[in-house]
Write a protein that binds this DNA or RNA. Structure first.
Lengths: 173, 173
DNA sequence: TGATAATTGTTATTGACCATATCAAATATC
DNA sequence: GATATTTGATATGGTCAATAACAATTATCA
């Protein structure tokens, strides 16, 4: 499949291969035919995922939260007192890569590592007050600016059906 | 959101945070609650995308084709005679990053760069005979082993609805 | 025509992620 | 109490996306 990031800049829109079209008198480079590509699950899935992440970053620009960071805050809020291994594993993040992520969140005073009294090897994770406040604002932004857009685009029923199908793929494919 | 690759090894299955559960007598670490995460579009979209790519790679193991490489072959077959900039741009690949990809495909004799006679700056792309043959086999593998699995999982109607919704997101979000 | 700008493929380089191996400290096992 | 396991952490390598810059070629246009 393919599809690059381009993130919030939304530069180099794919599918817009034709570049300098200024006038109908100009020689049109003719767009390429996608053909079977537009029916390939992986291709369309990847493209959609990039667009969604791109939009997510735009919505969260004021809070400076990436999708991954948002997921960590959500999970820690829902499961306070769990250690790094548990949280990372649940999110599919490898422990080594989770360290820098937490360093970031902790340096911004959004969450805290607390040495466990039961098992002094592990760090218990909790949200700080600031972390809870930021997450609350993030949820509102996501709901009003991000998820709401899906409803506008697909409608409530289709939106729910889409989430359900994607979950099924994620869990059973 | 988050979710790592783990590709074909399918190691470290996310959502399986509980590790060494051997017996019901063992102290169950209790799985974490996903909470609102399971309703987040980006989260479930990313997870699904990783699973689909993972499965794609398994299906294509005999041909050693990545999703990106497959998309290039498909597009070049459908649009022979286009140059690198056009093909790369259509797929959302930046020109610099497309060079190594083509080096790979060309070294395997799957496609060829031909200096254009009209514009001697550009390289026209075409599939070699071997490239066409490999792509034909790849299509069959994708259809029978990959896309077919979606039908088993969602049903024909839902599969089509899913593709359509994802395309809508990719194009209009 | 000829000087300047733009385009194409390419290289080099950087940063973001993903993944593995390894380590010290702490705990579990037997 | 000796050995193995677990936890957080570091170091490192790989892949991929993104930007800057360059030579060759072509387009623009005064």
């Amino acid at each position: 499949m393919t599809v690059s990031k381009a993130a919030e800049k939304s530069s180099e829109k794919p599918g817009d291969a034709a570049k300098g079209r200024k006038d109908a008198t100009e020689a049109q480079p003719e767009a390429l035919q996608l053909g079977e590509l537009s029916e390939q699950l992986g291709y369309v899935l990847k493209r959609a995922q990039l667009k969604v992440f791109e939009n997510f970053l735009r919505c969260m620009a004021s809070l400076q939260l990436t999708p991954a960071q948002f997921s960590v805050l959500l999970l820690v809020e829902k499961n306070p007192g769990r250690n790094q291994t548990e949280v990372a594993s649940t999110l599919g993040i490898l422990r080594p890569n989770f360290v820098a992520m937490l360093d970031n969140l902790e340096s911004r005073d959004l969450c805290a590592r607390i040495r466990s009294t039961n098992d002094r090897r592990s760090h218990i994770l909790v949200l700080t007050d600031k972390g809870k406040a930021v997450l609350a604002r993030a949820k509102k932004l996501v709901a009003t600016k991000h998820e709401a857009r899906l409803n506008d685009l697909l409608g409530q029923a289709n939106r729910e059906a889409l989430i359900e199908m994607l979950s099924k793929i994620a869990n059973e494919f």
